[in-house]
Structure formats: C-alpha cells, structure tokens
Amino acid sequence: MHGTVREKTNVVRATGTGTTSLSNGAGAAAVLAAGFGSFALGLIATLADKSAGIKSAMIFSKPTGPLSGVTTSAIVVWLIAWVLLHVRWHNRTVNLGRVGAAALVLLALGLLLTFPPFADLL
C-alpha cells in the first residue's frame, strides 16, 4: 500500500494546464525488454547453430526449420520481459541512463550474435 502511494507520486500531474508528465518507467520497460528480446534472438540462434539437440528442438514448423523456433522463442522472451518490466516499472521513475545502456549493450550483443563470422568464433 505504502509502495503504491510512493510510486504514484512519481507521476507528476499539472491539472491546471491540462498537461501530464509521465514517469519514465513504462518507456524504460519497453526499451530494456527490446534489448532482452534482441539478445535472446542472437543467443538462441547461436545455441541452435552449435548444438544439434537445440537445433532439432527449435523446429516448431517443419517447412521453416529451426528458424521458426529461434524467432518464436525470442519473441516470447521479449514479450514476457516487457510485461514483467512494465508491471514493475510503469508508475515509477527509474535510472534511465543505466537501463538504456544495458538495453543498448544487449541490442549490440544480439546484433553481433546474429552475424555468422562472430558466432563462429564462439
């Protein structure tokens, strides 16, 4: 209860002017979840490439092959992360510098892991 009250104080409302200043929590949740989703995509793709067992488990649709499982799993990770982070942060003000840096690092790693010559080094 106390936590809820404290969280709501982070939503500044200037009702007199009709403007509303939203907290950055919802945006931070979306950004970090996108980072998680991107990283999950690169990681699962790399794991499927390295392990025959994981590659076989990723065949959700036979015509498309392992790509179907890799991408579906990454989307599931992304959406779950988004929902969980949104529920936790949507009314809060978070340290966006750290969250943004983490999200961009995850995105960069995800991008690198999708690049075959980089994944082959691992």
Partner: peptide
C-alpha cells in the same frame, strides 16, 4: 536472423511514442 531485430525495435519505438506522445520531448534520454 538479423531481420527480426527490425520489428522488435520498431514495435518498441511505436509503443513508446504511442504512450508518451508529445511527452517524449520531456524525456530526452528516452
């Protein structure tokens, strides 16, 4: 694989702009 980063990133951008709209100007970092 890399193609799938595009819809993930752009959906996030769309969601943030949809939620914040003009308020986004007050969140320069975001």
């Amino acid at each position: 694989h890399v193609a799938w980063l595009a819809p993930i990133c752009i959906t996030m951008a769309a969601a943030v702009v949809w939620q914040y709209g003009r308020e986004l100007q007050r969140h320069p970092q975001l």
